[in-house]
Write a protein that binds this DNA or RNA. Structure first.
Length: 492
RNA sequence: GGCCACGUGGCGGAGUGGUUACGCAGCGGAUUGCAAAUCCGUGUACCCCAGUUCGAUUCUGGGCGUGGCCUCCA
């Protein structure tokens, strides 16, 4: 166990290198991941961080114990996009009610989607609007300590005050100097900013927008402060892992880091910063603004992508076929390959002797993952290594292989006892719905007779007829006698 | 324009200063018509140029290409 603990290595965006992971408190490993802004269906690209960090969550639970990992994923429910969408979708409701309704249903949809993709619920999913008081408190602290200032109803964070000694810290996560950022600035700078890069902690709300009373008048928080306030409340001033998409290092995480360190007077916010790569479609980033996206719900429940729907476990495997930091080209061939591989894994488990019937449930819950697979996973979630181990067990010949395969797939969140039970029952159901099996046996016997007579035409006629009823024949040879043995199964 | 990442066999996708995963597809075989299923076998690939080295796909420099960030974004 202790060797496993010390062997987790994670790529840290801050240092741009893989580092040994050692939690601040082994009894409470803490991870914060930036979650969805709940104004619309999640697309499959939005699901990647949920899946990637779910796998990490599961690995940490495996290594440190289920009760010793805290995983927070926030729900952003205050945002200009939400306001706009609520007004559009519920024009007859008062805005506050419309927003309530929109954010609530969107969050439920998100949680349902992620569950279908095999993701565990995080330990907590705090909502921004439930933590306005904590945000205001942190902003006040920042003003008192000179890191923030009020200007025309806004409160702004002064980026140049984020220093360690005399060294400017702002920009160190994204590895960008203030000059670099200014050179590339594409937005007009508000005149009341002391520095062009200063960002909003609090902004005024007009009467037609959601707002909360504050020392600076009725207003609403800026985007970044919620994560600083909520992570502090539930995880402490410094925690272990902070994750999110590769678009977040700048500005979101850079700003969170600045706020948190300045408010808490700490040198760091998280030990490790992790970022997942994007999904691409035809080589371009999948994004809502470009319109080249598929929602999780569409993939699961409609035939919009590739003319068919896709099970959650297939989508999950497809997503795990590449290192989390690299982009994935989301394509039909990828999903097909994932489905084929996953089908084979399931079949091998059954062929090697696993039976997902109730009396086995307790015994099977004890099956653990293959240690080499855990080792690969511990190496910054090296999924290629993980896949190789899964394939190795899938091709094994012993019951042991099946147990390890099940244990490994379970750890990855790809299968559960229940999902395998359903799979087994579905396979069985196909058999039950097939035409009378004695008739099939007779047909097979007739075909065999025809084959022995070298009457190929008649033999093929029988086979084709069965095929038309969805019965697929597979010929093999008995290893003892050398005689032809014909099995049948119900095809798709 | 600035910053960052990546560029591997038909495709997907790891990794390594020398023995070169894994998967998909293909090909050959087990298989005594054809097919399917299964199993076995089969692939010396690493963008270009220069440098370091006994030796580079792996290190260094330059170039080209692709993608991302610099504005809301997973």
């Amino acid at each position: 166990m202790s060797s496993a603990k010390s062997s987790i290595r994670l790529f840290n965006t801050m240092s741009k290198s893989k580092q040994d992971f050692s939690p601040l408190d082994e009894n409470n490993v803490r991870m914060y991941v930036c979650g969805p802004t709940v104004y619309d269906y999640a697309h499959i690209g939005n699901a990647r961080p949920a899946i990637v960090f779910d796998v990490l969550f599961r690995l940490l639970r495996h290594v440190y114990g289920q009760e010793h990992v805290t995983y927070l994923r926030n729900i952003t429910d205050v945002d200009d996009k939400i306001n706009a969408r609520a007004a559009r979708d519920y024009p007859d409701l008062p805005l506050n009610e419309a927003i309530q309704k929109l954010t609530k249903t969107t969050q439920q949809q998100y949680e349902a989607d992620m569950a279908e993709l095999g993701c565990l619920e995080p330990t907590r999913q705090p909502r921004a609007t439930d933590h306005i008081a904590e945000m205001i408190e942190m902003i006040e602290t920042l003003i008192k300590s000179g890191h923030a200032y009020e200007a025309q109803g806004h409160v702004l964070f002064a980026v140049k005050t984020f220093k360690s000694g005399e060294v400017l810290q702002y920009g160190k996560l994204a590895r960008r100097s203030l000059d670099d950022m200014l050179a590339g600035a594409r937005v007009e700078v508000a005149p009341y900013k002391r520095d062009p890069m200063d960002f909003v902690l609090w902004k005024p709300s007009s009467s037609d927008l959601p707002g909360w009373d504050s020392p600076w008048g009725k207003g609403r928080p800026g985007w970044h402060i919620e994560c600083s306030a909520m992570s502090k409340k539930y995880l402490g001033e410094i925690f272990d892992i902070h994750g999110g998409g590769i678009d977040l290092p700048f500005p979101h995480h850079e700003n969170e880091l600045a706020q948190s360190c300045c408010a808490n007077n700490t040198e760091q916010m998280a030990q490790v910063w992790m970022h997942n790569g994007f999904l691409q479609i035809n080589g371009e980033k999948m994004s809502k603004s470009d319109g080249n996206f598929y929602t999780v719900d569409e993939l699961l429940h409609t035939e919009k992508f590739g003319g068919r729907s896709w099970p959650g476990d297939v989508l999950r495997v497809a997503m795990l076929m590449k290192t989390y930091r690299e982009p994935i080209d989301f394509s039909l061939s990828k999903l097909k390959e994932a489905e084929k591989i996953l089908g084979r894994w399931k079949k091998s488990m059954a062929d090697l002797g696993l039976k997902f019937i109730e009396e086995n449930r307790t015994e099977y819950s004890e099956f653990g993952p293959c240690s080499k697979m855990v080792a690969a996973l511990s190496n910054d979630m090296n999924m290629a290594g993980v896949m190789a181990e899964l394939h190795r067990h899938s091709k094994g010949e012993r019951l042991h292989n099946a147990r390890r395969l099940f244990g490994s797939l379970k750890l990855l969140g790809v299968v559960t006892f229940d999902s395998m039970q359903k799979w087994e029952q579905a396979t069985q159901k196909l058999l039950d719905n097939a035409p009378d099996s004695t008739l099939i046996e007779v047909a097979i016997a007739n075909r065999l007779e025809a084959l022995n007579d070298k009457n190929w035409v008649e033999a093929d006629r029988i086979r084709d007829e069965l095929a038309s009823q969805g019965i697929k024949l597979t010929d093999s040879k008995d290893s003892e006698t050398g005689k032809r043995v014909t099995n049948w199964e119900v095809g798709k």
